[in-house]
Design a protein around this nucleic acid. Structure first.
Length: 420
RNA sequence: GCACAGGUGGCCGAGCGGUUAAUGGCAGCAGACUGUAAAUCUGCCACUCUUCGAGUUACGGAGGUUCGAAUCCUCCCCUGUGCACCA
């Protein structure tokens, strides 16, 4: 099949947008030029280990870059590392990962597909699993692969090096990870592999192995690792600072609004399709005072939320966010929690209120507090309100609560529906 | 296998026979302040209960010595380092 490709300059413009590093760049240019003249598209791969059921916005930085290649007419391979997930990429880790079962991995892999197709075109994407070639690799071939590297080469990697020096354990199978990832490139005959900047070591191993197998060596394109909500650590579900692709519009919008002003600019660059020059203009406007930073952030939250949901849903999320946080009011758009009157200890039968409700219990059952003890403390800290009214007493009458009260503890609110 | 050094609350890290859910830091949560934030200040940060009080669990695991142990002893598990093994 023959494809018409945009010019080299045009392609490079899109490909290099936001990229942290491209190695070697010259080779990539040659490949692009060749694909233009031959009409044969390049093969671009990015791998993801299905170690968790959800992808988050951090992953989309890479997926967006894949889409850029897709938009240019190249073949994009979304590689699901179901076999490498058995190891778990040790990159940046100071401990060995907990092993996942085959079943967990398979289930995660399924959810990945539907999630990435919010960004990638399903028709034009080649979805592959590395179990396809890794699981069938025999002892002989595995030993041959491992023989390509030495222990000291592996220990060059910063995280292994660090763990080694700090006398932390390094499990043997972790050393195989970069080799397995590198072999993926051989199996797929990749022209380009995408990864985060933290993946450099692994990405380079693909070049090593391709050379060993007499293939042209892939170019590697690294994207920066974006920080999570805290603005300090990389976005990661286990660090609790991530925004998941599948999260509701309200959650997504709210989380985006909670990031710092500084971080907002990175999100504009890596999580939206706005052009660099437009972002610079906006930044200048904020600096000069022409644009309020909060407004810029609201736009960001809306654009991203709409990207994964819809304009309409993003608008609704924006409105209820404004009521809830800006006006500190009671928003209607709040998660509903069902609580039964029969819950153990919820109703105080002995008290003067004749069936008053223990608020600490209620807050706990409603999921706003991790324990009744914590709920008790929060009440004392004046952090709890019912239908927008702060409360300070530990027991509240059923009458005061009403049929479907909105409970709020700090920033979180829920509507309680009584059951039974 | 032998020797040595370690295993403390989400993480890091004090304590090394006895005031105490366990110093301190980070993270987290809440309040004030704001522009939703950030920064700053304050409070909280094992669980349960009828909560100005009481109880129950906690310092790798199991026992033991003590009036009393995270702190001492024994055995076991785990990690690292060195040596040995690789006839």
């Amino acid at each position: 099949m023959s494809v018409f490709f945009p010019s080299l300059e045009e392609q490079l413009d899109l490909i290099t947008k936001g990229a942290a590093e491209i190695l070697p760049l010259e080779a990539l240019k040659e490949r692009i030029t060749r694909s233009i003249s031959t009409g044969v598209p390049m093969r671009i791969k990015a791998g993801f280990d299905p170690t968790a059921p959800d992808l988050h916005l951090g992953h989309t930085v890479l997926i967006r870059k894949l889409r850029h290649f897709q938009q240019l007419g190249h073949v994009v391979i979304f590689l699901i590392g179901d076999s490498t997930a058995l190891i778990g990429d040790p990159t940046g880790r100071n401990v060995t990962r907990k092993p996942l079962t085959r079943e967990e991995i398979a289930a995660n892999a399924e959810t990945y597909k539907e999630q990435v197709f919010k960004i990638l075109d399903p028709v034009l994407t080649e979805v592959r699993y590395n179990s396809e070639w890794l699981d069938t690799l025999g002892y002989y071939d595995m030993v041959k692969l491992m023989a390509q590297f030495t222990v000291s080469q592996m220990l060059e990697r910063e995280d292994f090096h660090k763990r080694f020096n700090e006398e932390q354990p390094i499990a043997l199978h972790e050393l195989i990870y970069p080799i397995a990832q590198g072999y993926d490139s051989v199996a797929l005959k990749c022209d380009v592999e995408l990864g985060g900047t933290d993946q450099k070591f692994n990405l380079m191993r693909g070049r090593d192995l391709q050379k060993h197998f007499g293939q042209p060596q892939q170019s590697i394109l690294m994207m920066p690792i974006i920080e999570g909500l805290d603005g300090v650590q990389k976005m990661s579900k286990s660090l609790g600072n991530a925004i998941g692709i599948k999260e509701s519009p309200a959650e997504m919008y709210g989380k985006l609004m909670s990031i710092s002003d500084e971080l907002m600019w990175k999100y504009w660059v890596f999580l939206t399709d706005l052009r660099g020059s437009e972002i610079e203009q906006m930044k200048a406007d904020v600096a000069s005072g022409a644009l309020h930073p909060m407004l810029a952030k609201k736009n960001l939250a809306r654009v991203i939320t709409a990207d994964f949901h819809s304009e309409e849903l993003a608008e609704v999320a924006a409105e209820s966010w404004a009521t809830q946080f800006q006006q500190r009011g009671v928003s209607e758009d709040v998660p509903v929690v069902r609580v039964s009157w029969d819950e153990d200890g919820l109703v105080d039968v002995l008290g003067d209120l004749g069936g008053g409700v223990r608020m600490a219990k209620l807050l706990h059952f409603a999921g706003l507090a991790a324990s009744t003890g914590e709920a008790t403390r929060k009440i004392a800290e004046n952090a709890v309100s019912i239908n927008g009214e702060k409360i300070s007493s530990r027991i509240v009458s059923k009458h005061q609560l009403g049929d479907s009260p909105i409970l709020r503890l700090g920033k979180k609110s829920v509507r309680v529906e009584w059951v039974g």
